[in-house]
C-alpha cells in the first residue's frame, strides 16, 4: 500500500509537470508576442523591447518556463495585466467561493445520484429504471445555461423564492449568509451531475449483479436485502468513488458556465474575465489552480478506492 501511495504521488507530480508545460505553452508561446498583446498594436519597438526584458521574455523558452514554474510554486503568481494587482489574492478569494459552491453541489448531488443509480440498476429494464434512465439522458442533454435560465425564470422571476443573481456575494460573507445565493447555481450543477453519476452508478450495479459471487450469496439463502447491501453494493459502489472524482473535473467545467449565468463570483467568472481582457498571467493562474484541484481530487479518489479495495490494499 505504501508503494502504491508513493507511485500515485509520483504520477501526480508528473501530471502537474506536464499540465503546467501545456498551460505555459498555450499561454506564453501560442500567442506569439506577449508584449504586443499587452501593449497593443500601436506600441513602439522600444517599448516592446523594454517590456520583453522586464517580463523576462528575452530568455530562452525553457528558462522562462523554469522561472514561471518556480515562481508559481513559491506563491508568486505575478501581477494581472488588466487590474495591475497581485493575482494570488484574487484567485484565492474566488477559489474559496467556487469550492463552497462545489461543496454544496456535491452534498446535494452525490446521495441523490447514487440512490437513483442504485435503484435503477437493481431494477434493470423495469419502469423505475426506464424513468431514471430516460430522465438522466434528457437532463444530461441540457446545457447548464439552459437549465440555469429555466430555473431563474421559475424560482426567481415567477415565484421569487431564490435570488436570480449571485453577484451579491461579497468577500468575507459567512457560509450561512452566502447560502441563499448559492442554491440556484448549485441546483443547476446538481442536475447535470445527477444524470452523469446516476448513469454510471447504474451501470456499475448492473455489471456487479451479473457476477457469480452474487449467485453464491443468493444460494446461501441469505435474504435479498443482505445480498444487495452486504455483497453487491460493497463492490458496485467502489467504481462510483472514481466517478465522483472524475465528475469533479466535470463540475469545474460546468461551473464556468453556471457562474456566468448567475454572475457568481467564482473562478469561472474570473476565467472569462481574463479571456476578455487577454490577461495571460491571470489565465495561467486560474487554470493551474483548477488543474491542481482536479489532480488532487483524482488522487484522493485513487487512494480511497485502493483503501476500500482489498485487492489493491493487500496486493504488492
Amino acid at each position: 500500500m505504501t508503494k502504491y501511495i508513493l507511485r500515485r504521488f509520483g504520477f501526480l507530480i508528473l501530471t502537474l509537470l506536464i499540465t503546467s508545460m501545456i498551460v505555459f505553452a498555450i499561454t506564453q508561446w501560442l500567442p506569439g508576442d506577449v508584449a504586443r498583446v499587452i501593449l497593443g498594436r500601436e506600441a513602439g519597438e522600444a517599448a516592446l523591447e523594454n517590456l520583453r526584458s522586464e517580463l523576462g521574455l528575452d530568455a530562452p523558452l525553457p528558462v522562462q518556463y523554469g522561472r514561471w514554474a518556480v515562481n508559481f510554486v513559491q506563491g508568486d503568481w505575478g501581477t494581472s495585466f488588466s487590474t495591475r494587482t497581485p493575482i494570488r489574492a484574487v484567485v484565492m478569494q474566488r477559489l474559496g467561493n467556487s469550492l463552497r459552491l462545489a461543496l454544496v453541489t456535491l452534498v446535494l448531488a452525490i446521495p441523490l445520484a447514487v440512490g437513483m443509480g442504485v435503484l435503477a440498476g437493481l431494477n434493470e429494464n423495469k419502469w423505475i429504471d426506464n424513468v431514471v434512465s430516460i430522465s438522466a439522458l434528457s437532463v444530461v442533454g441540457l446545457p447548464e445555461f439552459v437549465t440555469g435560465l429555466v430555473l431563474i425564470q421559475v424560482f426567481a422571476a415567477t415565484f421569487r423564492i431564490f435570488p436570480a443573481s449571485s453577484s451579491a456575494i461579497k468577500p468575507g460573507m459567512s457560509f450561512g449568509e452566502a447560502l441563499p445565493f448559492m442554491l440556484l447555481p448549485a441546483i443547476t450543477a446538481t442536475l447535470v451531475l445527477l444524470a452523469y453519476i446516476s448513469r454510471l452508478t447504474r451501470t456499475g450495479v448492473i455489471e456487479e449483479l451479473k457476477k457469480p459471487y452474487v449467485r453464491t450469496a443468493t444460494l446461501k439463502g441469505l435474504p435479498r436485502r443482505v445480498v444487495i447491501v452486504k455483497h453487491v453494493l460493497r463492490n458496485a459502489l467502489l467504481p462510483t468513488i472514481t466517478v465522483i472524482a472524475i465528475s469533479f473535473g466535470w463540475l469545474i467545467g460546468g461551473l464556468i458556465v453556471i457562474e456566468n449565468v448567475f454572475n457568481y463570483p467564482g473562478l469561472g467568472r474570473l476565467m472569462v474575465f481574463a479571456i476578455d481582457r487577454r490577461d495571460l498571467p491571470l489565465l495561467q493562474a486560474v487554470t493551474m489552480v483548477v488543474v491542481v484541484g482536479v489532480v488532487l481530487a483524482n488522487l484522493a479518489a485513487d487512494l480511497l478506492y485502493a483503501y476500500l479495495n482489498p485487492r489493491i490494499r493487500l496486493g504488492e
Partner: peptide
C-alpha cells in the same frame, strides 16, 4: 495530463489565447 484540465477550461484557455 490533458485530461486533468477540464474540457471547457482547456477550450477557454486555447480560445482565450488564439
Amino acid at each position: 495530463s490533458l485530461l486533468a484540465i477540464p474540457a471547457l477550461l482547456l477550450a477557454l484557455l486555447l480560445l482565450g489565447t488564439v
